[in-house]
Amino acid sequence: MNSIVSIRDVVKEYELGTTVVQALRGVSLEVMKGEFLSIAGPSGSGKTTLLNLIGCVDTATRGVVEVAGKDTAKLTERELTDLRLNTIGFIFQSFNLVAVLNVFQNVEFPLLLQRKLGSKERRDRVMNLLEQVGLHTHAKHRPSELSGGQRQRVAVARALVTDPLLVLADEPTANLDSATGNQIIDLMKELNQKKGTTFIFSTHDHKVMQHANAVIRLADGKVLARESAKDAVAHALSLGEAPAEAPAGARV
C-alpha cells in the first residue's frame, strides 16, 4: 500500500500572548491508502492540530508534512487550497453546511469549485451520493430542516463528492447521539470499503474507535502508540468510563 500522508518530526507551536504553546511536539506518522484510521486522545492532546496539518488548513512550525506526495510547506496558499479541493474531503464536528444552500447544492458545492464536470454529470454524481447516504429524497431541503444525523450525512456526501483520496473527519460524532454516531461511522466505513477512500477521523469515543483499522493515540502533543482498535478500546476502557476526561498522566 502507498503512503498518502507522511508526517515526520512535526512540531506545531502557537503563540498565546507572550508564551509559546507547543501543540505538537515532534510527531511522526504514516497513513496508507485505504486506511480507516482513528486519532484518539483527550482534549488538548493535539488531535485537531494534527488533522489541521494533514488537512492543509494549517502549516507546521517545523518538520515535514507530505500529503499525496506533496510537501505542504513548499506550496503556496492557492496550491494548498487546490490540494484541499481535489485531494481531501472534510467532515466537521458541527457539520458546517452552508445554511442558505439546500442539500443538493451543499453537496454540489465542491464540484462547482472544481469546474471539471458539466451540470448533468454533477447532478448524477450528487444524486448518486445522496442515495448512498440515504438522503436523495431530501435534496431540496435546507440544512435547517434536517436532523443532526441527516446533516452529517450530507456533510459526508459533500466530503466524498469529489472522489478525494483522503477524508478527514474531526470528531464527526461528537454532536450526535450514539446511535446516530454509529450510523455515520458505519456509513464512512462502508464508503471506505467500497471506494477505498482513506479516512482519518479523530474521536475520544471508544465505541467509535472500535471501527478503525488502527488507532493513533495522542497525548500532550506526542504519538503514544499506533495500535489496533481492539487494543485501543481495551486501553480506553482500562482508564474507566470517561477515558477522554482522564488526566494525561493517569494513563502512563
Binding site: 487546490d82 484541499r84 472534510f90 469549485l113 472544481q114
Partner: peptide, 10 residues
Amino acid sequence: GTMRAIGAQR
C-alpha cells in the same frame, strides 16, 4: 472558513 477549507479560493 468552511468554504475555504473545502477548497474555495479567496
